[in-house]
């Protein structure tokens, strides 16, 4: 499980997060939602030990992320950031193979190759595997990054806006695939997501944040109420009951 205790972070004078306490059980999909600047990405990055917290402790699967061995942690926890800038020129397959680094230190075993194949297939990238990343569209590249996280084959996967750059079709497919990863591969997925309706449709838990604080934690049905959403997003929101999941409507309310 993921356990945050009194975690706080400031950038200079700007208070970004906390102090927050949060317990996320193993398994399932947790969606972090909230307006811009609510501290969602900051919290995710701190859990993924890419950013040091000013105060508090973070434990993932019993390991303190600031003191645990980085290599050990990389076998337990994978994180995908929102922006990925690098000049390295790699094919999709090479990128996804890098996800195996914590297990193989670069010398791919047959097990690694199988894991890479699985990840490629899982995100329907098999046909694109020989292409270079700079020859792909933004959405295809986004899927390649997610495939790399899956190839890392960790119990926990943290994804910062995995739906970035994806069109309607691919956004739905991506969420369906993450759902499958949680259900079939027994992963614990935590993601930052902007479209509250995607969170409602696919997540098991929604964590709503504003101004660096956690305001609500609950199942989609518990969080998806007009009062809660209007409060969190500071915008009038109506909730319609769709047969499969509640649906937030906020585009034009008269």
């Amino acid at each position: 499980m993921i356990k945050l205790a009194d975690v706080a972070k400031s950038y200079g004078d700007v208070h970004a997060l906390g102090p927050v306490d949060l317990d996320l059980p193993r398994g399932g999909i947790t969606a972090l939602v909230g307006p811009n600047g609510a501290g969602k990405s900051t919290m995710l990055t701190i859990i993924g030990r890419l950013l040091g917290a000013d105060a508090g402790t973070v434990h993932v699967a019993g390991m303190d992320v600031t003191t645990a061995k980085s290599r050990q942690l990389a076998k337990t926890l994978a994180i995908l950031r929102q922006e990925n800038h690098f000049v390295a020129r790699l094919t999709v397959r090479q990128l996804v193979s890098l996800g195996r680094f914590p297990h193989s230190q670069g010398r791919l075993t047959t097990e690694c190759v199988a894991a890479v194949d699985r990840a490629l297939e899982f995100l329907d990238l098999t046909a694109l595997q020989a292409r270079y990343l700079d020859e792909l569209s933004g959405g295809q590249r986004q899927r390649a990054y997610v495939a790399m996280v899956l190839a890392q084959d960790t119990e926990y996967a943290l994804l910062d806006e995995p739906l970035n750059n994806l069109d309607m079709q691919h956004a739905v497919a991506m969420m369906a695939q993450l759902r499958r990863a949680a259900d079939e591969l027994d992963k614990t997925v935590v993601l930052v997501i902007h479209d509250i309706n995607f969170a409602a449709a696919y997540a098991d838990r929604i964590v709503a944040m504003t101004n660096g604080r956690i305001r609500y934690v609950g199942s989609p049905r518990e969080v998806m109420t007009p009062d809660v959403l209007s409060d969190v997003f500071d915008t009038p929101v109506e909730v319609i009951d769709h047969p499969t999941h509640p649906l937030a409507v906020y585009y034009r309310l008269s």
């Binding site: 290599r71 050990q72 995908l80 950031r81 690098f86 890098l98 680094f101 670069g106 890392q152």
Partner: peptide, 16 residues
């Protein structure tokens, strides 16, 4: 190869 992916990806893959 991993380091050339930048600090965040490299850290995420367990490289110091």
């Amino acid at each position: 190869d991993v380091v050339s992916m930048g600090r965040e990806v490299a850290t995420g893959l367990g490289v110091r």
